[in-house]
Design a protein around this nucleic acid. Structure first.
Lengths: 188, 188
DNA sequence: CCTACCGATCGGTAGG
DNA sequence: CCTACCGATCGGTAGG
């Protein structure tokens, strides 16, 4: 059962992802649903509230995917692999939401932005722990964890800039190729 | 000699980078220069023209840094190293312009966007050639060049999201650490 | 969800 | 670079 509210969110997610929050008007969203702009306010509180709901949803999707992996009893290497697959799968299966989370959180008001940054900090902390575990157990070289985390998440996040669901690369293939290069390098 | 026009460009670069093109008003830019919005039009043609000038400047900075490296007679490995350093230096020394180029080109009108995308395509082609040369001369493993280029540039581009000039990492250190991980991997 | 608006702000211009 | 505007559009609301 898709409610009107769901459809409004879907339209807003797509438009915010494509044209940005400030580049999207309330009338754009209404038009995508075939209604007039004033009618939106039966379903939403404000444009900013709509943005926050979408960004929060994105942040939560990343955390919900990583937390069970982080808490599992897999080996450090398997955790790393599972986490990279999960990260790229969140991006590729929720492209619009992930893109809005990654790029449009700057448009949030102070209070909402603070909340989202706390979620992002938690996500980054879990990744740092996971990589540190790999180093501590001797499966990863003793590199600077902050650099490594930045490199992994940088490459992961940028997938949202070029991934196309109708392209030749599946999420699993992307994650697998990235992981192989990261683990073993490209020097012959 | 800094002209008024230079100062307007500087203010616009900063504001577009921080709040986005659509999130920045012509009055924001004027205010940063201590003048009124109408007065801007003695120096610029339109808001969109200002955006294009800044985005084009960013695209050209990346190309101007890469082309001499690409055409030099360095070894493939030295080219790769020099190209990564150059890419990260363009980002870190022109943060605002690079960020506007990387994120705000979507706000350009069709004609300007096409021109910028041609520059981006050329940049990516040079990188692909450079990596292919590494594979052909046997210094890099025969991995999929497209994946590798995406991984390298993804990690490189995302630097624009977290780099702070007052932070602990210099551009050279970032490039060096990234290159070491990419070449030799992190698996122990 | 529509009709019918509102005040505020937008990018931009004419004439100095 | 300012004064003084312009028409268009913005996010949002009252009352059905």
């Amino acid at each position: 059962m898709k409610s009107s509210k769901d459809e409004i969110f879907r339209a807003a997610r797509f438009l915010f992802s494509t044209k940005g929050y400030h580049g999207t008007t309330i009338r754009d969203i209404a038009k995508a649903r075939g209604i007039l702009s004033g009618s939106l306010y039966a379903h939403i509180e404000s444009k900013e509230d709509l943005l926050y709901a979408i960004v929060e949803e994105g942040a939560t999707a990343f955390l919900d995917a990583l937390i069970p992996i982080s808490q599992s009893d897999m080996s450090a290497l398997n955790k790393l692999q599972a986490a990279l697959v999960a990260h790229i799968e969140v991006i590729t299966t929720h492209m619009d939401g992930a893109r809005v989370f990654l790029h449009e959180w700057t448009a949030l008001d102070d209070e909402h932005r603070q909340k989202v940054l706390l979620q992002r900090d938690e996500y980054e902390k879990l990744w740092a722990q996971l990589l540190q575990e790999g180093i501590d157990t001797g499966v990863l070289k003793p590199v600077n964890v902050k650099y490594l985390r930045l490199l992994v998440l940088s490459a992961g996040n940028w997938v949202s800039e070029w991934y196309r669901s109708d392209g030749p690369m599946s999420p699993e293939m992307i994650a697998s190729e990235f992981l192989t290069i990261l683990l073993y390098g490209v020097a012959e």
